[in-house]
């Protein structure tokens, strides 16, 4: 029995090295003064300084933060509703379709999601006149749809772990259903909603494919800038840019984990 776990432990160790070392090397080389990746000439913040003077980078960062903030907020509202449906409603007509639709953004290849979303926006513009052109707004809608699934699963996990006693007590004492929802249920799932918001923010911040399909000429996001730069070759400036993105994601994730762990919840949906 003991030989296999030993082997498994070794693979786990190697696997973790495999998962972390490449990204950590990018962060390390971003502080390298030299333009060449293989030669370490000294610690320097030079490449970060160059980023701050790069108007294209600053614009893209602003766009990314706006898109991420708005889409995370919309996704939290939608995902919380969907989570309530999953956890608290028994069977209802169309439940299977609901579950299937909710899971689609999670499993479909991104190119299909991106293209098909774009087609909806164009068709809506043709028939309804909205949205007038593509830009921040259309990326927000696409990202909100993608992230609401994750939030629904997190909220569902939270709700199934909670007893209904408080809700029932409030109801017995005469609170209206809406008041039970706002005064009891929502505060109880608030940490899950907060963690979900942060995960949605990270998802949006990182997305390249869906944003490329649904964006307009004025709404280049940070991953789009990185992608076109990487196609031209590796540069120390991209290393710095990548490190900024990794650190932003890590901070959000740390906060999300802390929010969830406070009451023994789970950070990631199973």
């Amino acid at each position: 029995m003991s030989r296999f776990p030993l082997f498994a432990m070794a693979v786990l160790g190697l696997g973790l090295v495999f998962l972390y070392v490449p990204t950590l090397l990018v962060i390390a080389t971003s502080f390298n003064e030299s333009r060449l990746a293989g030669v370490w000439t000294g610690f320097s913040l030079r490449w970060y300084g160059e980023l701050l003077n790069d108007r294209q980078f600053l614009n893209a960062t602003a766009n990314s933060l706006i898109v991420a903030g708005l889409s995370a907020t919309a996704a939290t509202a939608l995902g919380t509703c969907a989570g309530l449906v999953l956890a608290r409603h028994g069977r209802f007509r169309g439940r299977v379709l609901f579950l299937g639709l909710l899971a689609t953004p999670l499993v479909l290849p991104e190119v299909i999601i991106g293209l098909s979303m774009l087609l909806v926006f164009v068709a809506a513009e043709q028939t309804l006149g909205w949205p007038a052109g593509r830009g921040i707004g259309t990326i927000v809608v696409a990202h909100a749809t993608l992230a609401m699934t994750y939030i629904a699963y997190i909220v569902q996990a939270r709700l199934t772990g909670l007893s209904r006693e408080c809700e029932e007590a409030a109801s017995d004492l005469g609170a209206s259903p809406l008041r039970v929802l706002t005064a009891i249920t929502l505060p109880m799932i608030a940490p899950a909603m907060g963690a979900g918001w942060l995960l949605a923010f990270v998802l949006s911040l990182d997305d390249l494919v869906i944003a490329s399909f649904t964006s307009g000429p004025q709404s280049t996001t940070l991953p789009m800038v990185i992608f076109s730069a990487v196609r031209l070759g590796v540069s120390p400036k991209i290393n710095a840019l990548a490190s900024v993105l990794v650190v932003m994601s890590a901070v959000c994730l740390g906060l999300a984990a802390w929010l969830q762990a406070r009451r023994g919840g789970k950070v990631l949906p199973e």
Binding site: P22, T23, V202, D206, V234, N239, A242
Partner: peptide, 23 residues
């Protein structure tokens, strides 16, 4: 944790490792 850190950056990290003048 790596799953939640940028997909694009993780691919880019391998570009830096594997290219002819890479690490």
């Amino acid at each position: 944790l790596p799953f939640w850190t940028s997909f694009l950056i993780r691919v880019y990290a391998w570009v830096g490792l594997l290219r002819p003048t890479g690490l």
